[in-house]
């Protein structure tokens, strides 16, 4: 229902409804409307759906869950062989 991809804000221009960012998606550059993420600045990653940034990626949360999954590997369940 909603393909949304994270990209890095390269530059920002305009304001309010027209606040727009040049956003880099692994080499693809797109103009993205940033009016719904006023807190997002150049260098931030935003989640973009149909040309609209709908959230700023929380880099702390993003790393925390990865670390949590890595530690799972060392936990007691780790011994259970994956069939």
């Amino acid at each position: 229902m909603c393909l949304a991809i994270p990209g890095r804000i390269v530059s920002i221009h305009g304001h309010d409804l027209q606040r727009t960012g040049r956003v880099n998606f692994s080499g693809v550059i797109r103009d993205v409307n940033l009016s719904c993420v006023p807190e997002a600045e150049v260098g931030d990653y935003v989640l973009v759906h149909v040309g609209l940034a709908i959230s700023r990626v929380d880099e702390v949360e993003a790393e925390r869950i990865l670390e949590h999954w890595r530690q799972m590997g060392e936990g007691p369940e780790a011994e259970g062989a994956m069939s």
Partner: peptide
């Protein structure tokens, strides 16, 4: 791609699948 590829890691998928199996 940042914030995509890390969440497709075979190693982390393995850890999660093991956790689901034991849960």
């Amino acid at each position: 791609m940042k914030y995509l590829d890390e969440y497709r890691s075979a190693e982390l998928v393995g850890n999660l699948v093991r956790a689901i199996r034991s849960a």
